[in-house]
Amino acid sequence: MGTTSVDRSGKVGRRGLLGAAAGIGLGLGVPGGSVTAKEGASRRTGAAGMTLRWWGNNSWEIRIAVGEGERTILIDPWLTRFHTRTYAPEGADPRTPISVDTALIDRYVDSGELRADHILVTHGHYDHITDVPYLARRTGATVMGTETHLNLMRAMGAPEDQLAIATGGEYLSFDGYSIRALRSLHSATGPRAQVAFAGTRPAVPPAEPRVIEDLVEGGTLAFQVSTDDGFSVVNLGGSNYVEAELAGSRPDIVMIPPGGASVHKYVRRLLDILDRPRYVIPTHWDDFDYPLDEPARDWGGLTGLRQAVEAASPRSRFTVLDHLESRTW
């Protein structure tokens, strides 16, 4: 889950899921400077051999050409999209049962449409982690996440030998690509700038999670995935970040969730520290009560994000993908 707020009834409300109102807290206003000659010269201009596909929410498939084949990295894959009413006025009930649509996942995996070498988890909320243990079993992928994320997934039956802990700071090389795990922050909203379903589950795996409030945030990571030729994408799973962690990463693409109402100059600071990437792709902007085989429905943050990006980095291309749509660089 991105940014959330909890009202007095205990329900998780949309006036928080990735920000209160479109444009609020996005840091509108053009900063000094523009894209530099150095930036243009140092970033790849040819075919990068990377394909991105959006599976809704913050679920992304990254395919990287390697020789005659390819490698596949999934970020926060959540296909089940069980009904929560998170974006409805009354908000989601924290006692909403967790479910995994194994038949749906099997259909994509068995057809060869979905596979994975790595699965990267940004945080432990239900709309980011619920399907990962089953997908790990089906694909054999290595799963990277914090201690809490891995403990939650152990409790949900993830294969122990496929779990790789990340604390942020890891910079790892694989066949044809590299992965950097970056310490990050979850979105925070409301008058006290709080994180919903906060907490950790260290040391010992908890009881099997049953309802959505059992899946706590558990620390937040961002990830940078790069081809061996240097083309890279940074993904943020929540609308907040640690500037020092992102400094020097200079990705070609950044995936940004809308929101950031409580974050000082959210978009402007982010694009400045990333040296204004060539492409900005919105993520986590769809109402996930609607299925993947329908066009994505904006929960209300997309326009504000677009305006903030255009103001802060006019030369960045704001590139929107729809459900299950792919684009190759």
Rank of each mutant, 00 (worst) to 15 (best):
G2V: 12
R14A: 10
L17F: 13
G23I: 13
G23W: 13
G27V: 05
L28P: 05
L28V: 02
V30Q: 14
G33Y: 07
V35S: 11
T36G: 13
A37F: 11
A37Q: 04
K38I: 12
R43F: 07
T51S: 01
W55C: 07
N57Y: 05
I62P: 00
V66G: 02
G69Y: 03
E70C: 02
R71E: 02
T80L: 02
T80H: 00
R85D: 14
A88N: 00
P89E: 04
T96D: 11
I98V: 14
S99H: 03
V100P: 12
D101Y: 06
L104M: 07
D106C: 03
D110E: 10
E113D: 09
R115S: 11
A116R: 09
I119C: 06
L120R: 12
T130D: 09
V132S: 01
A136N: 00
T148I: 01
M156K: 03
Q162K: 10
A164R: 12
E170H: 11
E170V: 00
L182E: 07
S184I: 15
L185F: 14
S187Y: 08
S187A: 13
A188I: 13
T189D: 09
G190Y: 01
R192A: 13
Q194I: 00
V195M: 00
A207V: 07
P209F: 03
I212S: 08
L215M: 09
G219R: 09
A222W: 10
F223I: 07
S232K: 09
V234L: 15
G237Q: 08
A244Q: 13
A247P: 03
M255W: 07
G259M: 11
V263Y: 15
H264L: 12
D272Y: 02
I273P: 02
I273W: 05
D275V: 04
Y279F: 15
V280A: 15
V280K: 11
D289H: 04
E294M: 06
G300W: 05
G301D: 00
G301R: 09
L302C: 14
A308R: 13
A308G: 15
P314M: 05
L321P: 08
L324N: 13
T328C: 01
